[in-house]
Design a protein around this nucleic acid. Structure first.
Length: 516
DNA sequence: TCTGGGGTCCTAGGACCC
DNA sequence: TCTGGGGTCCTAGGACCC
């Protein structure tokens, strides 16, 4: 992926003048034989990338099991139940959005704009008009994941390469399943989709097929964008929601993007949008016309990538999502300085994170906390261990220690995270001690540690051997013995002891797309 | 609009090593 | 004793995404 990007090479159009070099390039006709131009730096063949984005997914799932909710304003969120004081909207149906209730709206505000149906007592003249009330439901992630699994089954069937971005969103590379050729040959039919495409292409038909299969087989609506790259496909799926199908054929990407506000680009959030506006850059077209180096000065590599994507260039390949990099849990609490309350909260979060790590069969080497102080001051602290572990007690211990720095502070939110994850355990088992992680093996050889390859096999060393049973301050001593980590894992990493629905297809990468 | 929870990636500075 | 530059790891924070 990297390197490909070094726009210098070949191409001649080194700094493709503002605008179009790429956009102007004609779509490759379907007649080109793959590989016919080996050895030269010709443009890569156009890909066909679909981005599938489920429409207000949680709300759609709720409607799936309760058809009475269809056509009603539906708000799915958390924190509005009695006793809860903090929370936000997770998903609002489009009917609810008409009342100004959107994802991330604080629940109190949502209730102001759209009272809950239960409060609409017809006998009470002061009660809200039932027509201006909504149905509020708590998040039921387990159910949404069931539905998502059916959606994914369709997607897997429709694409060789699938990247699941989240429970309700995925990229598909369908280059091998379809093409950009116009339907009808010399007498092409007009496109039936939204977007710049004037003629109907095979890709359009394929995307519609995917969309319809999702609706038919999973029972929930999706919006689909089709384009020659990920970035454009993503914007396209967003361009005609809900229930949209937007086709952006090769050669028209920059034109398609140009009139959109910068915020429509993936990677432009409120901060970047503002910073761009200060430079007079308001639309994607403005971004495309900007000098990449100028934006790089302001935004680093992101700035360069932004310009490229606005010009319709994005070389990223669709790849399955890899293993997670971190696991975390956090929770808001009424502002408090109560140390015991804080410690209890962190201990509970730590236990939960450690449990999830164990369920997924992963070890972690870094333990961290997050403390959010009013008004919204985010602080993170982390400590790395000499080697990867699976040790819930240690997570709690380290987390509480890190928390002590904030003992006197008022907090509004606390979190615990483990990172530096290590999933190699399973591999090691199958490889029969032949393998260690890179760093561990290196250490072994260097030091010829206390337990050589063989010695390590059966020893039941525990974490306490090298971190000390007590405070992680002992970590010092641990350094020299970090090669024990493998052993530690063997003794500690009992995976899947809980009954949690662990759907590992044991396909390595692919299976992990399921988590979350 | 003062903000829920779970993630990702990037950057910058410091420590440490060679 | 003063000096250099490169590489890697770690921590903290920030922006962004769904």
């Amino acid at each position: 992926m990297e390197g490909v990007d070094s726009r210098s090479v070949a191409s001649g159009a080194v700094d493709d003048g503002p605008g179009e070099a790429d956009a102007a390039r004609p779509a490759t006709d379907g007649g080109t034989l793959p590989g016919s131009d080996v050895g030269d730096d010709a443009d890569e063949p156009d890909r066909v990338v679909c981005h599938v984005d489920m429409d207000c997914f949680y709300a759609s799932c709720e409607r799936l099991r309760d058809p009475d909710l269809r056509g009603e304003p539906v708000v799915v969120g958390m924190g509005y139940e009695p006793g809860e004081t903090v929370g936000a909207v997770a998903t609002a149906s489009y009917e609810a959005r008409a009342f100004g209730v959107e994802s991330a709206t604080p629940i109190s505000e949502a209730l102001d704009r759209l009272p809950r149906r239960a409060d609409a007592d017809p006998a009470d003249p002061d009660a809200p008009d039932p027509d201006e009330t909504g149905r509020y439901l708590p998040v039921d992630m387990a159910f949404y994941e069931e539905v998502a699994e059916e959606v994914k089954a369709v997607l897997r069937d429709c694409a060789d390469v699938l990247r699941e971005v989240s429970v309700d969103e995925a990229y598909l590379d369908v280059t091998d399943r379809t093409a950009w050729d116009a339907v009808g040959g010399d007498d092409p039919e007009p496109s039936a989709a939204a977007g710049p495409s004037e003629v109907r292409t095979l890709a359009e038909g394929y995307a519609r097929h995917v969309k319809q299969r999702i609706e038919r087989e999973a029972g929930v609506p999706a919006s689909v964008g089709v384009a020659p790259n990920m970035s454009a496909a993503k914007v396209a799926s967003d361009a005609d929601k809900p229930d949209g199908l937007v086709v952006v054929p090769p050669g028209s990407v920059a034109t398609f993007l140009a009139p959109l506000p910068t915020a429509a680009l993936h990677g432009v959030g409120p901060v970047t949008e503002r910073a761009l506006a200060e430079r007079g850059i308001e639309t994607a077209g403005d971004v495309a016309d900007a000098d990449p180096e100028t934006l790089a000065e302001a935004f680093g590599d992101r700035g360069r990538a932004l310009v490229r994507r606005a010009r319709g260039k994005d070389d990223r390949e669709v790849t399955p999502r890899g293993l997670p990099k971190s696991l975390s849990r956090e929770s808001s609490l009424p502002r408090t300085t109560d140390e015991e309350r804080k410690r209890e909260t962190v201990a509970a979060l730590a236990a939960d994170v450690a449990r999830r790590a164990r369920e997924r069969g992963c070890l972690y080497r870094t333990i961290g906390i997050k403390a959010v102080l009013p008004p919204f001051d985010v602080n993170t602290r982390a400590r790395s261990l000499p080697g990867p572990v699976d040790d819930p007690d240690l997570v709690e211990e380290v987390a509480l220690e890190l928390l002590s720095e904030f003992a006197d502070d008022e907090v509004r939110k606390l979190g615990v995270r483990v990172s530096n994850l290590d999933f190699s355990e399973g591999d090691q088992a199958t490889l029969g001690g032949f393998e260690g992680t890179g760093r561990d093996r290196g250490d072994d050889l260097d030091r010829g540690g206390p337990a050589g390859r063989d010695g390590r096999e059966g020893t039941g060393a525990t974490i306490t051997d090298w971190i000390g049973g007590g405070s992680a301050d002992d970590g010092e001593t641990g350094h020299g013995d970090s090669d024990e980590s493998d052993t530690v894992s063997e003794g500690e990493a009992v995976s899947g002891t809980d009954d949690a629905p662990e759907r590992r297809t044991d396909d390595g990468q692919a299976s992990l797309g399921d988590w979350s």
